[in-house]
């Protein structure tokens, strides 16, 4: 992984507004050296999203700290996926979708004219709810991204990228002797790990996951959760989940959305032990959602 490219800006946590403030103080994992400083990888300010006439998100302010897991929770239709898709501009592909506001990665505006959306999506990977391997071999699935971005000089380098990506996605052992068989022939859980391998093969800085485990059984889910925990060392992760336990297990920061509004964002253990908003309280205790 070429981490030299990333020039993370270090900022005082106050700059991140109330959201990040508490996230830091409540979470040991974020602090390498015990100071009150953390790095913000991505931030959204005053974000409104419209589908045609209908507004789906209202003035969202959210910071995503680097090398940690941010969980997005909230009842169905509250705009979690919409927010996630703003971060890598996947909303561009939807007819009639309009995004207002400011989203930055490493302080630079992702809706800037000068910024190439293809390059942005190479920096921000995405894993979808339903595993969606291409109808190609396992090898070609993983090699797809590196090939289109020209990341490998030769075949050996490509082989190495594919191998290490599968390794980091925890899939290599299971598929090492059948890299040429179709990716669609794997089990659901394996397919999802293949999709994760495919995403990390292009060395993204951020990985977005939209309910990555909702189509999987508990064992495959546990597998992916473990993987997310390991990936946190190198990547910044934003994950949408409907599973409260999962949010509590894998994330350091949790954001609760409700009807297109960001109700509360805080360190995960804060949210689950002493939420400050009663809507949050109601949702995590299962009173609605």
């Amino acid at each position: 992984m070429n981490m030299e490219n990333n020039r993370p800006e270090t900022v005082k946590s106050v700059a991140g507004g109330m959201a990040i403030d508490t996230a830091v103080t409540g979470e040991k994992n974020l602090k390498m050296d015990g100071t009150e400083e953390t790095t913000i990888k991505m931030s959204a300010r005053n974000l409104d999203v419209f589908y045609g006439e209908k507004q789906a998100l209202f003035g969202i302010d959210l910071d995503v700290p680097e090398q940690s897991v941010t969980a997005l929770i909230g009842p169905s239709g509250c705009g979690k996926s919409t927010f996630l898709r703003c971060l890598n501009r996947m909303n561009d592909t939807i007819d009639g979708c309009r995004v207002d506001g400011d989203i930055r990665i490493d302080q630079s505006d992702i809706y800037d004219r000068a910024l190439d959306v293809v390059e942005l999506r190479a920096r921000i990977g995405m894993v979808f709810q339903k595993p969606n391997p291409f109808p190609k071999s396992i090898y070609d699935n993983v090699a797809y991204g590196p090939k289109i971005h020209g990341l490998a000089q030769d075949k050996d380098e490509l082989d190495e990228i594919v191998r290490s990506s599968l390794e980091r996605a925890g899939l290599l052992k299971e598929v090492v002797d059948r890299l040429d068989s179709p990716g669609t022939g794997l089990s659901g859980g394996q397919q999802q790990r293949l999709c994760i391998a495919r995403a990390i093969a292009v060395s993204p800085e951020v990985i977005l996951m939209d309910e990555p485990c909702s189509a999987l059984d508990p064992i495959a889910t546990a597998h992916i959760e473990e993987l997310i925990d390991e990936l946190r060392e190198n990547f910044t992760i934003v994950i949408v989940t409907h599973n409260m336990q999962q949010a509590a297990r894998v994330s350091q920061q949790t954001a609760f959305f409700h009807l297109g509004i960001l109700v509360e964002c805080n360190a995960t253990n804060e949210i689950f032990t002493s939420p400050s908003d009663e809507r949050t309280q109601g949702y995590i205790t299962g009173r609605y959602g």
Partner: peptide, 14 residues
């Protein structure tokens, strides 16, 4: 399926 297109776009493919 649209999910295949999304998967490809999300990897930065044109």
């Amino acid at each position: 399926p649209q999910t295949l297109r999304d998967g490809s776009f999300a990897l930065g493919a044109t």
